[in-house]
Design a protein around this nucleic acid. Structure first.
Length: 412
RNA sequence: GAGGGUGUAGCUCAGAGGCAGAGCACAAGGUUGUGGCCCUUGGGGUCGCGGGUUCAAGUCCCGUCACCCUCCCCA
């Protein structure tokens, strides 16, 4: 029986792998310019880390985690998201003793056991960043700007939606009031929303069913429950965004799915990829560090779905021109090996053609490989430009290499 | 957890009871060392799997598996 990849998992290769690498490299470059430092986090954590951070009642914890017991009887999970691990690492390594605040980024696979569909896999990849120990909304603005820079650099259009959730207490009071309101009008809601009253009442506010929209028109509004301080901070953030000329829409129904968010939340949404349109999202989580056993530390972060960015990435990542070396007869193979190493040492992308057969079939292969230049090795080395078809014979290999170097640096 | 769709060559797919097909890809040649375009030739198949109906089943029936998509939820 043929062995196949497990449902929801994927091999990323060829053009897709290039896109993936391009996105990650671009993000890394931008994040480092913002002076974020990379943190490489484990893929496996104690289950309770996610239960305590993401939230006991969330779908992620209830049904989407890959959990198992290891041979030592530890109950562990493949990480479903990155923030929890970053917070754990921040506390465990006592980073709060090593500076006033910290800016970290990470990249890698996440795992959620869900029904796969377009833009959603059981193993997916995120690139994310977190800021620990900063209260000022200046940080919120910088974080959003950084994500925006990344999307701009990748020429990806997305709508920025923002909202504020306030602190835990006011949100709790609001949800309580909202539940009461929804229960009163329960009969008018769609079946899904009827269950949402208990599982995810805030989500009812974003239901697309007409009847629901109608019946929540007069629902209590979160903004009326928020403390003055939250409103002020939200106002400041909006000012900063305007100052940065970042367009945004306020979406009072924007609720992140995880329990730990407080105050600022934001999403970058694309309309081009259907249902899974959220390509990057994040927000503040001012209570989480303390909640997980660290000192009270305000914090915020975001994560972007690399697969979703890949769908939207239209431009083909820049590639180095390829030179293919073809030894004309076996006697020239040692020379070809040495020339190939030399070119690679000069930082040229070089293929020593390994295909056997007629010269015609070798040339076909060179063409398929996307060769810009071909070097024929016989008594005198010969350079061919595959675009123009021009060929030139050189007296020595050194002469050829000089010309080749000049041409490849000119054009790239 | 609920709904829909698709499984035939390496890939994209046509074939809807009667010889297993096309395009692309791969290989050789047309061109006496030279790619792309064109032409010729060639290799390639458990028609997802199991059963049933029939003289005869990719084709009809039952079952099953896999994948894709949608909802829920999310990156």
């Amino acid at each position: 029986m043929e062995i196949k990849k497990v449902r929801g998992f994927q091999d990323i290769y060829g053009k897709e792998a290039k896109k993936y690498r391009y996105i990650v490299d671009t993000a890394r470059n931008i994040f480092e310019n913002y002076n974020f430092e990379e943190i490489i986090l484990p893929y496996i954590e104690d289950i309770s880390l996610f239960i305590r951070s993401v939230g006991e009642a969330t779908d992620i914890v209830q049904k989407e985690m890959y959990t198992f017991e290891d041979k030592g009887g530890r109950k562990v999970a493949l990480r479903p998201e990155g923030t929890a691990s970053a917070v754990r690492a921040f506390i465990e390594n006592k980073l709060y003793t090593k500076g006033s605040y910290h800016k970290l980024f990470y990249e890698g696979a996440m795992f959620r056991y869900e029904r796969p569909q377009a833009g959603r896999y059981r193993q997916f990849h995120q690139i994310g960043a977190e800021i620990f120990g900063v209260e000022t909304p200046l940080a919120d603005a910088e974080l959003i700007k950084m994500v925006k820079d990344l999307l701009d650099r990748l020429s990806i259009n997305a709508r920025l939606e923002i909202n504020t959730l306030g602190d835990f207490e006011s949100r709790k009071r609001y949800i309580q009031t909202l539940k009461e309101y929804l229960n009163k009008t329960k009969e008018n809601l769609c079946d899904v929303c009827k269950t949402r009253i208990d599982t995810n009442p805030l989500r009812v506010l974003d239901c697309k069913v007409k009847a629901c929209k109608q019946s929540i028109k007069d629902a209590p509004k979160l903004i009326d429950f928020l403390p003055e301080e939250s409103l002020k901070r939200y106002q400041r953030l909006k000012e900063y965004l305007k100052e940065l000329k970042i367009e945004f829409v306020e979406n009072p129904r924007l609720v992140r799915g995880l329990d730990y968010y407080t105050d600022t939340v934001f999403e970058f949404v694309s309309d081009e990829i259907g249902a899974q349109g959220t390509i990057a999202a994040g927000g503040r989580y001012d209570n989480l560090v303390e909640q997980l056993g660290g000192p009270p530390t305000p914090a915020l972060g975001f994560a972007a779905g690399i697969e979703r960015l890949m769908i939207l990435l239209k431009q083909t990542p820049p590639e180095k021109q390829l030179t293919v070396i073809i030894p004309m007869i076996q006697e020239f193979e040692p020379q070809a090996l040495k020339l190939a190493s030399l070119l690679r040492k000069k930082d040229l992308r070089t293929e020593l053609l390994l295909k056997t057969g007629s010269l015609k079939s070798k040339m076909k292969t060179a063409n398929k490989l996307g060769a810009k230049y071909v070097i024929f090795l016989h008594e005198k080395p010969e350079l061919k430009d595959m675009e123009t078809g021009e060929q030139e014979i050189f007296q020595t290999e050194e002469d050829l290499v000089d010309v080749l170097l000049k041409r490849t640096t000119q054009t790239s």
